[in-house]
Design a protein around this nucleic acid. Structure first.
Length: 287
DNA sequence: AATCCGGGGCG
DNA sequence: CGCCCAGGATT
């Protein structure tokens, strides 16, 4: 199964810029955080800009939060941008400016969870690590007969994934990259292209004639229209676009619903600062 | 374990 | 228009 997968990857994998040989761990960390819940196609331009502008942790550590939030553009979940800056500061303070290579040290960094820590170890340092993102979880789940993996990672699932991971470091990296790519391009959530799948003969979900998702009744898409999240997004977009403080009244006029709750949340998250009746990005009001 | 947290694009 | 996307932090 390993050779079928890696052969498929060599011929069909996307030409993503961070897959270029020699991409430093810091740049890998950046694209992994950016890719948390944001489709890869939208990450590419932002990643190119960030890696050129802040090529090392020390560079981002010296940047202002307003510059970082503006450069984040509309990737979504802007708390990730603040965490990335805090992460760079932690790397400078605790690791002499070099991204740590152990999973435990990576996990201790702001904004780095189990997925990102494993991905940096694997793709950034070329060491063995169990990478479990939504793509790999889905591929392995289907090999085991499930339409989609459980909403939260279970111990048996992790054990099954670990049993499939090659022990050799080089092969484990190739396995992680190829399985993730297969999930992204072929073994997709909605309409899998099993005719193009190099490991279809091992797929128990296919062999069982595609039984439905056991957890379908628990999956709920969160509403969007009129939510605090939408209000937060519109406020952040307005602040990114303005290099002057924005009066609260202007924000209220643009999106009257839930402005006060949204602002309170953004203030608590450190994504905005407020002076009197105006708000701005943190760090944008001078010293 | 459940919630919160963006935004866009595709079927 | 519902659904999904290289998740993490907090409770």
């Amino acid at each position: 199964m390993f050779s079928e997968l890696t052969t498929w990857f060599d011929e069909n994998g996307r030409d993503l810029p961070w897959r270029r040989p020699g991409t430093p761990p810091w740049h890998i960390l950046l694209c992994e955080v950016m890719s948390q819940q944001t489709p890869v196609a939208r990450v590419v331009p932002a990643w190119l800009e960030w890696t050129e502008r802040w090529p090392a942790p020390r560079d981002l550590a010296e940047a202002g939060p307003d510059d970082v939030l503006r450069a984040w553009k509309s990737l979504g979940y802007p708390r990730r941008a603040l965490r990335l800056r805090e992460c760079a500061i932690a790397i400078v303070e605790n690791h002499d400016g070099a991204v740590p290579s152990s999973e435990a040290e990576l996990l201790a960094l702001p904004g780095v969870g189990s997925y990102t820590a494993a991905a940096v170890v694997s793709f950034g340092f070329g060491d063995c690590a169990l990478v479990l993102d939504t793509n790999i979880r889905r591929v392995i789940g289907r090999l085991h007969g499930q339409a989609l993996p459980p909403p939260s990672l279970t111990a048996p699932e992790r054990a099954r994934a670990a049993s499939l991971l090659p022990e050799d470091a080089l092969e484990s990296v190739a396995w992680n990259a190829a399985t993730m790519e297969l999930g992204a391009l072929v073994c997709t959530a909605r309409s899998p292209r099993c005719d193009a799948c190099p490991i279809a003969e091992w797929c128990e979900w296919r062999a069982a004639d595609y039984p439905p998702d056991r957890f379908a009744h628990r999956r709920r898409t969160q509403a969007w229209e009129g939510t605090i999240r939408q209000a937060r997004g519109s406020i952040m977009a307005a602040l990114r676009a303005s290099h002057a403080p924005v009066p609260v009244a202007v924000l209220r006029r643009a999106d009257p619903s839930r402005i006060d709750d949204a602002l309170a949340g953004l203030l608590a998250d450190g994504l905005v600062v407020r002076v009197d009746d105006e708000v701005a990005l943190p760090g944008s009001l001078g010293s």
